[in-house]
């Protein structure tokens, strides 16, 4: 019973985050920031939904193992695909939209003591 409620919460949370990630895909300005939103769908949305399904399997069995494998594959392949995509976009001459006038290097030396 508790497991059921917990799995419902996970499924709903995952569904909400999947939609939020898709909204982010629409709202963010360029391909670099959009890939953050896609990463959100890949990690948290997928992770929460699969976790919710795991709680419904009823014990340790083959289905649970397969779900764990799906989660593993998503988590290992998502950063690699993302990296290849962003690198290809950069090599093709896509310019990221950046905020002007941010000096990160100086704050690195002073260990972030300087307020921005």
């Amino acid at each position: 019973m508790i497991l059921d409620v917990l799995s419902w919460i996970f499924l709903l949370l995952g569904g909400a985050f999947v939609i939020i990630g898709a909204i982010g895909m629409l709202r963010l300005p360029d391909v670099f920031s959009r890939s953050h939103a896609a990463g959100m769908v890949d990690t948290f949305g997928a992770g929460m939904i699969v976790l919710g399904l795991m709680l419904q399997t009823g014990g340790i069995n083959l289905i649970l193992f397969k779900l764990v494998l799906i989660l593993f594959f998503i988590f290992f392949t998502s950063p690699a695909a993302n990296y290849a995509l962003v690198r290809a976009a950069l090599a093709d001459g896509a310019k990221p939209i950046l905020k002007e006038g941010v000096d990160l290097q100086s704050s690195e030396k002073e260990e972030g003591a300087k307020p921005l």
């Binding site: 990463g39 990690t43 290992f76 998502s78 690699a80 990296y83 962003v86």
Partner: peptide, 16 residues
Amino acid sequence: YANSLTLTPITITVEQ
């Protein structure tokens, strides 16, 4: 390290 940065949504590794 690079993959962990990419998995965390607010940061991604562009080039290594």
